[in-house]
Structure formats: structure tokens, C-alpha cells
Design a protein around this nucleic acid. Structure first.
Lengths: 383, 383
DNA sequence: AGCCGGAGTGTAAACGATTTCAGCGCCTCT
DNA sequence: AGAGGCGCTGAAATCGTTTACACTCCGGCT
């Protein structure tokens, strides 16, 4: 492997000069610069990242810790993170499948000296335990986890608002027996969505019914089984709200097999609005979440934080933000016409809402794919 | 940040001893060991990755270069890579959205000194140009790209075999007017699948028909539009083979909207067999690819290669392998009963097939989720 | 002529770890 | 008693960079 010394020797200069040629458009004679650049290119030299990190104490890398990598949700989050990181010149060090506190801790420490900051997604854990052993001036952004009032920078999805809005919508369509297929157990998003569901029911004066809360795990299969279970309940629910689209799709399949018509006999709605939702039969109503924007925004915030740390300012702001969601009403819940009548414009450009000690709104960002793509459904903000 | 020196000072030993305590269960007195370990834990010390890499010249990191991060396919590949890498104690440095030769080259060099080996997926490029500037003893595994007989280690999906098998199946069901929705232009997988399609037609003595080849880009939307276009063709095709499931799902949606019955009027089939395929209406026939196994296998091979490089052996073997595919026949192509009659057992444990200068078969691996999960469809090996 | 300053370059000290080699006790053997 | 060996530990070199500082020209000024 060719090092800076090889280039220096070959070009007849010192390593300092070679370094200067690569890093600063600094004080180096034009002739020398050209000669060095030419030699470097010829030898195929590129600087050794680790050596560089060691002395500059910056890695130009962002660490990402994820609970699991299953389904479109994660692929979209990573996509958003990656694009933004790349735009700012950062690499991505990814580690997934961490649920337990121990594993998270191990993964975090093994990233020491390899990353400038961390995006941690730990929907099964509270913030404090997830990052307990991290220095409190280390740049960090938390994604989708219970933060309470902890002094972290955190971004979450509008789970509660979105779920409540969808269930309200179902209730407004006349449904009184509304069931839910919940997400994975001990999962923050799942819990919040269920809370939104319950809240909407209470608000409508509907007594909750244990048999209408079927347990799922965010996978298609679990939605399929949960729907079968719900069909057996008496009285049978007339609407099913699945805590994500994958389960809603499983549910649609189960209903079809049982000869239940959607939406005539049972209305169905999901959450996430994955790209496929609109191609289902019938097209699936869902709560739209701009997942890749979530990743983009988290990265932007983290990069800011890293920059602050570089200037020796306190990197964390303690800001908690929520990504807005909105209803996308399609055929599966039978409410297209009703919704169109009540339609409100989509939320202000999809910018997150600051809920805690925020100082100023997040900077602008380009519109993401999901927003640009027409949804072939009726949009209503959930906020 | 606490360094090895802090620990040494605090524990009253030299840095050498601290290092030994962490790395080797070597020659260090039990009392000293305990004391050092205790101090390290109390101070929250963990070794600085970059510093370590510099001296050991290993990073314990695998670089992954991807063309784009869209859809379930990539999420599954990464999942497989991540799991395997983690099992071998490697981190993952990921960089995506690279299609152009220039971008790839830049990404590759910026990874120098940060990774021990690379997995490169470049379906738009031939192998040679993608990694032209890489030292030829650098551990490398190519995924899904045209390798010809280049001396690289490469793994591809059985695109050709799978597509041909599916089209053969459609032909066997009596279809003569079989259309295809192709994948993204200048994409290796897309080209191979189309080649399989054409081959099966030729074999059956069916003259290809330009109007039956509609162009797609692997996205749902493009499948939707392509299907509309195919419906307008005269004579109208009686079967549509989409080069991936996302497009097949878009196509199903278009057919439904046009009042065309599937499979009675038009049969539909996809490729990839993503988890959702079986929940479609009607359940989608597809060519099953164990995508996460593709990632797992690539990683295993790369790790072997890195180990060889560590032993100063030549790291590359020049082995080309193909991941097997098999048909999963569901309702959308109307051939469930016929297929059941002709059913053959699934391929030997999903192991890849070596096609070039291989020396021995790949080691065993645990069965992946996709294989364990029953498919609710009829399986037939495509090999 | 001597001094000063700026432009351009080189020397060497960091960064935080690993590892070789040598040294120090102390025990055992002759 | 001296030599040798063994168990353990420390000093210092090393990895490939960046960068503070010193140095050398050389031209212009007094």
C-alpha cells in the first residue's frame, strides 16, 4: 500500500508538502503542487483514513445503531440517512439487530474512535438506559425512542397523532366496533400507536374491548393471523386498524380468504403508507409517514451537533421533535368520499414540530420522493 | 476521552500491560490483570479504533458499496450482510447511490484505510471498470454484476435460469402471447432476466414481439404504467412476466382497474418473491430468491478472503457463484394445480452453484428465514 | 552592506494503540 | 555461590498522517 512517504520520495519533497497539497490550498508553489499531484495520481495514493483520524480526531463517519433491519421502514430510514450523510461528506457505520441494553452498550463502545457521532434507534428502550455509558458531550441523536424529558436530541414519528387521527376517521365513518392489530411488544412506536387508538375511542365514548386488541409484531404473517382472530370475536369488529402496513396487508389477505368484503363488511387501515399501499386490493388507507425524511432530518441534526462539538461548544441541544403524519384515505376503509369533503391541506412542508427546549426551526430540505409522488388518495394532516 | 495512558497511570502500570490485559490472555499476573480491568471499567475505557487499526493494519470493518438503497431487495441484502459480518466481529461501512464509474471510484478510495475488504454491487457496470483502481490483492467480492471471466470473486442471482423457468412455466400453461415488463435500463439483473425470457420463448418456437416488451425500472409505478401499455397492445398478451415483484404488484393494480381478471384473462408473475407477494390479491407467483442469503454468502466469502490476506496468501480465488432460485407458483398465474403435479423438491439446501475456477464448495450456513417460512405455494427448483 | 519579511519548504512532535526486546527478581540447579 | 531460566513488566519503536515551528532563500529597503 502506497503511503505519503512514497509519494514524497518519488516527488522529491517532504511528507509535509504532500500533505499540504492534499489538504489545504495553502502556501505551496504551483509547480511543486502539480508535480506532487501528478505523482500521487500515478502511484494511486489516497490517504490512510485511520492515520488521519488519529491525528485530526475526526473520522468523517456517523454511526447508526438499529434494532433490526427488517422491512421497508428500515430501508427507507437508512436511505434518508445515507443521502444526507453523503451530502455532508460523512460515511456510515451501521450496526443492527440490537435490542438488549447489553448489546447496545457493546456496540456503542466498539464504535469508539470510529465515529464522530451516533444515531441510535432503540424503540424497545428508554433513552437513558440505551446510551447510559456514553459521555454526555458526545454527539447523539435518538430516533423513535421514549425520551420523556431527558436532555437528548430526539426525533420521533407522530405515532400518537397519526393513530388517533386514523381511528377518529374510522369512527367518523360510523364505525363503533373498531379493532386494532398492535405492533411488537415493548416497542415504543407500537405503544404510542395503541395509545392513539385508545384515546380516539375514549374520546368517542366507545368502551374498549379486550377482544378487539389483537397482538401483532409488525410482520405480514402476524397481521394475517391477528385478522383471523378478530373475525372470530363476537361481536365482530367492523373496522380494523393495523399498527403498520405490513400487518394491514396480511389482514387484507386473511379477510379475502374468509370471504369478507373490504371495505363493505370490514374497513381496514394501516400505518406508514409504504409505496405498495396504494397498489393493494383494495388500495390501502394509511397514515403517511415520510420515513426517509426522518432519516434525513436526524442526520442533519447530528451533523450540526458534530460541528458544534468541533467548535468545542456543547453538542446537545435537548430538542425533541416529531415528524408530522397525515392520513391518506383510499378505498380500504370506505371513506374516500367522506374524506374528500373534510379534506384539509397537507401539513406545512413536512417539517418536524419542536416540542421541547427548541431554539429555532430546522433548516429547509428538499422535498423527498414520497412527497413529490402523488398519492392517489385524499390527504389530511393529522395535526 | 480516556486513553490507555490514563488507565495505565491510574492502575500504576505501563501502557504495555494495559494493552496486554485487553488483547491477550497472555502472561499477565492475575492480580495485575484484575486491577487493570477494574480501573478500565471504572474509567469507561475502550480502545480507540483508529489508533488500533493504524498499528495492526486491520480495521475489522467491511465496506459495502451499493448502487441505490431502494426497496426490499436492498434492505434484505444488507440484512444478510450485517448479520454475517456481526457474527464474525466485523463492522459495516456502507455507501450507496453509486452508479457512475467516477462516483464508485471516489467512494472506493475514500474507504482506503477504513475497511479490510469490500462488497461491491454494481449492476450497471462490468466488473473491470467498477473496481479498476483497486489493488488486485485487496479482498473483494462482487455482487450482481457482469463479470465474464474476470479474475474476481463474484456472486450473482440465478436471473437467467429463474426467468427462463418462469416463462417456461407460463408457456406450459398454454400461453403463447407472453409479455415482459423489463427492469431498469443498463442493469445487469434486468438484462439477464430479459435474456431468460427471450430464451424460453425461442425454445418454445414463439416469435418475440416488440410490443410485448414493456420497459420498467423496478418501481411499482413503472409496473403500473407498463401494464396499461401492454393491455393496449394488439394482439393483447395473455400473460405478463414482470422482472420484479414491485412491478408485478403495480401491474396487478393496473389490471384490476381495467377490469381485467387475473389469472383468468391475464396471468401475472414476478421475480424476487418478496414477503408480501403471497399476500397479494391474487397471491403472486414469483421466482424465489433468497436475498438475505445472498448477502450472507457474500460476507462469508469476503471474510475468508480477508483472512487469507491476513495470512499473506492471495486473497482472491476467482470463483463465480450463482444463488439458486426456484418457482413459487401461486394463484396469479393460474397454474397452481398444474405445478403441483409437476412439482420437484426445492434445490439442495439453497447453496450457491460454483461455475468457474472454484476449488471447493462453500461451507454450510444456517437456514435463513425465507427458507424456514412455508411459502403457501408450490415450489419448483429452476435448475 | 546589512536587515527584514515573506514565500516556500522541511523537521519533528504529536495522535493512541500494539509489540519487540530487554531487564529485573527470584528460584533452581550444579 | 554463580549461572541459567522463568515469570512478569516496562521502554521504546512503530503505524501514516497533520501541523507548529524553524529554516532557507531572495528581493527590497534603509
Amino acid at each position: 500500500m502506497v503511503t505519503i512517504k512514497d509519494v514524497a520520495r518519488e516527488a522529491g519533497v517532504s511528507v509535509a508538502t504532500v500533505s499540504r497539497v492534499h489538504n489545504r490550498r495553502d502556501v505551496v508553489n504551483e509547480d511543486t503542487r502539480r508535480r506532487v499531484a501528478e505523482v500521487a495520481a500515478r502511484l494511486g495514493y489516497s490517504p490512510h483514513g485511520a492515520a488521519r483520524s488519529l491525528i485530526t480526531s475526526e473520522t468523517n463517519t456517523i454511526g447508526v445503531l438499529l434494532p433490526d433491519l427488517y422491512g421497508e421502514f428500515f430501508s427507507e430510514v437508512i436511505r434518508g440517512i445515507d443521502q444526507t450523510a453523503q451530502r455532508h461528506g460523512y460515511h456510515l457505520l451501521i450496526s443492527s439487530s440490537h435490542d438488549e441494553e447489553r448489546e447496545i452498550d457493546a456496540a456503542l463502545r466498539s464504535m469508539r474512535g470510529r465515529v464522530d457521532g451516533l444515531i441510535v434507534m432503540a424503540p424497545r428502550l428508554g433513552a437513558r438506559e440505551a446510551v447510559a455509558n456514553l459521555a454526555d458531550d458526545f454527539p447523539l441523536v435518538l430516533l423513535n425512542c421514549a425520551v420523556d424529558d431527558a436532555p437528548f436530541d430526539a426525533i420521533t414519528v407522530g405515532n400518537f397523532d397519526g393513530a388517533r387521527a386514523m381511528v377518529r376517521h374510522l369512527v367518523a365513518l360510523g364505525h363503533r366496533r373498531v379493532a386494532i392489530i398492535t405492533g411488537a411488544e415493548r416497542n415504543y412506536d407500537a405503544a404510542e400507536r395503541r395509545r392513539g387508538y385508545r384515546d380516539a375511542l375514549r374520546e368517542a365514548g366507545i368502551k374498549p374491548h379486550a377482544a378487539w386488541e389483537a397482538r401483532g409484531d409488525f410482520g405480514e404473517e402476524s397481521g394475517y393471523r391477528a385478522a383471523q382472530q378478530l373475525l372470530a370475536a363476537r361481536p365482530r369488529p367492523t373496522a380494523i386498524f393495523a399498527a403498520n402496513d405490513a400487518m394491514a396487508i396480511g389482514a387484507l389477505s386473511a379477510l379475502r380468504e374468509s370471504g369478507v368484503r373490504v371495505p363493505e363488511d370490514v374497513a381496514v387501515a394501516g400505518f406508514d403508507d409504504i409505496p405498495m399501499a396504494r397498489y393493494m386490493s383494495p388500495p390501502l388507507s394509511s397514515v403517511h409517514v415520510d420515513i426517509s425524511a426522518l432519516g434525513e432530518h436526524a442526520t442533519t441534526r447530528l451533523v450540526e451537533s458534530v460541528r458544534r462539538a468541533g467548535r468545542r461548544e456543547r453538542p446537545r441541544e435537548g430538542r425533541h421533535e416529531t415528524m408530522p403524519t397525515w392520513l391518506v384515505v383510499r378505498d380500504s376503509c370506505g371513506g374516500v368520499r367522506a374524506a374528500a369533503a373534510a379534506s384539509t391541506p397537507p401539513p406545512k412542508d413536512g417539517r418536524p414540530t419542536t416540542t421541547a427546549t427548541g431554539r429555532r426551526a430546522a433548516g429547509g430540505r428538499r422535498r423527498s420522493r414520497a412527497e413529490k409522488k402523488s398519492s392517489r388518495g385524499t390527504r389530511r394532516s393529522t395535526t
